[in-house]
Design a protein around this nucleic acid. Structure first.
Lengths: 146, 146
DNA sequence: CTGTTTCCCATTGACGCCCATATAGGCCCA
DNA sequence: TGGGCCTATATGGGCGTCAATGGGAAACAG
């Protein structure tokens, strides 16, 4: 299946690297993603990982606006200033740089969360809490009826 | 990838110099930019850095207007009066002159922010605050959709 | 002559590239 | 069906290179 699914928590090694779950790497390989566009998420304290085409899509949104507008500038501040290209090492690991750590609060463990067409990198505690909260809200929205 | 992406915060040394992130220098080198056009940004309390062709582009915008118009004069005041040519030293460092400091509020640390076709130099706190605010506004624009 | 800028050189830590090990799960075979 | 083999995944670490930073000394300007 060519989607990012499930979640897994891995340990960061002494050199600040984490193994990306092999199922995620398989999806990336199938999509032919050599370089990864990693950006600080707009909603959650997590970074999102996707192929370069996602940046292209964001840039088209900006290009449609007046380049001198405050809106276009703020958008660029997020997608350019808040994003970076990275690549996996030979063993399929990703370096947890300050760019990622400062935004996510990641210390020594990382939770990978599938999001369909991309995946996210979280501090484990933040992921647990946010997912639990989302589940609660959903339950309130639609009472258990199955 | 030939775009300015990501952000990084570096320390200013005793001589008032900062290292420009190596990924930014790589983009500049690829573009063949020897001299840098540094101008006080039109939107944010930051200075923007780009190749000389950006100044050319601005000048063409002015040339397209009536040279006696208030608009054209104001534009020139910004792009000429608010800009300067600079170059990196042998180690890829840039001097933080008063021209830059007074406009940005930079003291002893500098945040570099990629902006696609150029990059910006910010006081760290100002960058954090502005980017966070942009993210908040974006979140309100498109509600969380987990 | 003196403060500032430019050109070098030194140090330290981070990162890329490579190889080693262990454990879990799948697979084969009896 | 149970047990052992085997492969892939997750993880650890060596080592060379490069980036970020500090500082000396020459060149320059006021």
């Amino acid at each position: 299946m060519n989607r990012f699914l499930s979640n897994a928590t891995h340990r960061i090694d002494a050199k600040g690297r984490v193994s990306v779950p092999s199922s995620f790497r398989a999806v990336l390989a199938r999509a032919g993603a050599e370089e990864l566009y990693v950006y600080q998420d707009f909603v959650f304290p997590a970074v999102s990982v996707a192929g370069p085409e996602v940046l292209d899509r964001f840039e088209r949104l900006i290009a449609a606006q007046d380049p001198f507008s405050v809106e276009a500038n703020k958008m660029s501040l997020l997608i350019h200033g808040g994003g970076v290209f990275m690549k996996l090492d030979g063993e399929g690991r990703l370096a947890m740089t300050d760019f990622i750590r400062s935004f996510t609060g990641i210390i020594d463990m990382v939770t990978f969360a599938g999001r369909g067409d991309h995946f996210q990198i979280w501090a484990p505690a933040a992921f647990e809490a946010t997912q639990a909260q989302a589940r609660q809200e959903r339950m309130r929205a639609t009472p258990p009826s199955v």
